[in-house]
Simulated assay, not measured.
Amino acid sequence: MHVRLAILLCLIVVLAGCGRRLSVDTVPTGFPTPTVAPFFLERPTATPFIPPPTRTPFPTRPPVTPVTEAGGSQASAISSLQVLPVYRDALSTGWSITNSALLGSLTLTQTNVVALGQYAIAVTPSESTGILFFTITPDSGIELRRDQVAALRLRLSGGDTPIANDGMTISVVGSNRVPYWEPNDNSVSLEGRVTDSTEPLFPETRLYFLGLNRAIAPGEWAEIYVWLDDLIYEPEYTYVTGFYLKTSSDLVTKYYVDQVEWLIRDQP
């Protein structure tokens, strides 16, 4: 009797458990439909990290290091050169700017923006191109031989406006016939250049090729060096007879020049 009762109770328990079991095909309500985990989805293309531009220091020394035959330092090499002034508060004797062109205004005695001394040159271009042209006069008695001229050095500022390093070019000109500038001097030629070419005979070098790696900021003076031996496509000539600064008025609306001078090698 007891055995039959125990078997009956076990059977009841088994049947009750089977009644609560869910079918494998049954999905409980109230649960979201299974989806692929987010980290398996296709990710959007990431924007690459672009580092900010490096702030290269403003050049305070010549961009090219002159080296003496004895292998001396840059400072000693420059100090060994003789200085021939072109402008220090006034034009030096034998120099002229009367051949300048396309300028709205030009003064040699400006006092508001000065690098050294009392005065500086102030220039305002009037056209799309303005040219400040320094030339040696026929009666100057100056003789600048190309093989003795190392560099042109000057200080440049935009006053209260910046000067873009691609907004100005500097060119040194010369002659094979006379040691002074003549407007129709055709004694210099460039090999392979046709005579009626509209391109300038002497290279016009932009400021960024002269080591100026950023714009000249407002209120700042930059010391510019034009090392003649580093100029590209320079023709061969005997005498340096002048140089000019050429601007585009949409990039440089005004500028100031001070302490203009040549660096000359000792005569052998």
Rank of each mutant, 00 (worst) to 15 (best):
W221Y: 01
Y180T: 12
R146W: 06
F243V: 05
P183R: 14
P179I: 06
I224K: 01
E204K: 13
I170F: 06
G219Y: 02
D196F: 13
V172D: 08
P200M: 09
F243D: 05
S197R: 05
K254E: 15
Y233Q: 11
Y208A: 02
L212Q: 11
G174C: 10
P218Y: 03
G174I: 12
E199A: 15
F202H: 07
R214S: 15
Y225H: 04
D147F: 08
P235N: 01
K254C: 02
L152V: 14
F134P: 12
L231M: 05
L152S: 13
P183T: 13
L210V: 01
Q259F: 05
S248N: 15
S171C: 14
R153H: 12
K246N: 15
L152I: 13
D139A: 14
L190R: 15
L207M: 06
R206C: 03
W181C: 04
G158P: 11
F243K: 05
Y208K: 06
G174S: 09
D147H: 13
Y233R: 11
Q148R: 13
R155Y: 10
L245E: 01
V172S: 11
G159T: 10
P138H: 12
E223H: 04
N184L: 12
E143R: 15
A217C: 00
E182R: 14
D258K: 07
R145D: 14
M168V: 07
A151M: 08
E223G: 04
L154H: 06
G192F: 07
T195A: 14
E223T: 14
Y244N: 05
A222M: 00
R177A: 15
V260K: 00
R146E: 11
V178P: 03
G167A: 08
N184R: 09
Y244M: 01
F134M: 13
V188Q: 08
A164C: 06
G167Q: 08
L251I: 05
N176T: 07
T135S: 15
T205K: 04
T198I: 11
T253F: 04
P235Q: 02
E182K: 12
L207P: 03
T195E: 14
V226G: 02
Y239H: 04
L156S: 05
A215G: 06
S140Y: 12
S157T: 12
W221A: 00
E191D: 15
Q148C: 09
W221K: 00
G192L: 09
P179F: 07
R206E: 08
V172G: 09
F209Q: 10
I163D: 13
A222R: 00
L132Y: 04
L251S: 13
S171I: 08
V257Q: 03
L212D: 01
T195L: 12
P200G: 08
S189C: 09
T247Q: 02
A217E: 15
R214W: 00
E199V: 11
K246Y: 02
S157A: 13
L207Y: 02
T241N: 01
A222H: 00
